[in-house]
Computed example of a mutant assay.
Amino acid sequence: MSSPNLRPTGRRWAPLAITAGLAVGATVVLRHVNPYAGNSPLPGCPLYALTGLYCPGCGSTRCLYSLVHFDLPGAMAMNPLLVISLPFLLLMLLHMAGWRPRALDPLMRVLAAPMFWLVVLVGYAVLRNLPWMPFVLLSPITR
Rank of each mutant, 00 (worst) to 15 (best):
S139F: 05
W117E: 06
A26R: 07
P101E: 06
F70Q: 10
L6H: 09
L64R: 01
V110Y: 11
M133Q: 12
P134S: 08
A75F: 01
N39V: 06
P73D: 12
L67Q: 02
A17M: 15
I18P: 07
V136K: 13
P46Q: 04
F88N: 06
V122W: 05
V119D: 06
M108D: 04
R128V: 00
A37E: 15
L53A: 06
L6W: 12
A77T: 02
L94N: 02
S60D: 12
H95S: 14
M108Q: 11
V68D: 11
V29D: 11
F70N: 10
P73K: 08
A20M: 14
T61D: 09
P134M: 06
A23T: 14
G44N: 10
H32L: 14
L64W: 05
Y124H: 05
S139I: 01
L127F: 06
L42T: 04
V28S: 11
S60C: 14
T9P: 00
V136T: 15
P4I: 03
C45H: 04
P4F: 06
R7W: 07
V29E: 14
L64S: 03
M92D: 06
L22R: 09
W117I: 02
N39E: 15
L111T: 01
P46E: 03
P101F: 03
P106S: 13
W117G: 02
T9N: 12
M92I: 07
N34I: 08
L130D: 05
S2F: 13
R100A: 08
L6G: 00
R12L: 13
G98M: 01
W117Q: 06
Y54W: 13
S60G: 15
A17R: 10
G38M: 08
T142G: 10
G57Y: 05
W99R: 14
D105G: 08
Y48F: 14
R109H: 15
W99Y: 15
V126H: 01
R62I: 01
W132N: 07
Y124L: 02
N5I: 09
H69L: 11
L130F: 05
N79H: 08
Y54N: 04
G123T: 00
L64T: 04
C45E: 04
M78C: 07
M1T: 13
G52M: 03
P46M: 02
Y48D: 02
P131V: 04
V122D: 05
P15N: 11
Y65M: 11
L86W: 03
L118E: 05
P35Y: 10
A112C: 14
W13Q: 05
L47R: 01
A125I: 00
V68R: 09
H32I: 03
V28W: 15
P4S: 08
Y36G: 09
V110F: 11
R62D: 05
G57R: 03
V110I: 15
C63A: 15
P80W: 00
P46H: 05
N5A: 12
D71C: 08
S66F: 02
T61L: 13
I141M: 11
W13M: 10
M115R: 14
L64C: 09
G98V: 00
G38A: 15
F116G: 01
L127E: 02
S66V: 02
L16Y: 04
L89I: 13
L130S: 05
C58Q: 04
S85G: 10
A37C: 11
Y54Q: 04
L81H: 00
P43Q: 11
A113K: 09
M78Q: 15
V110K: 09
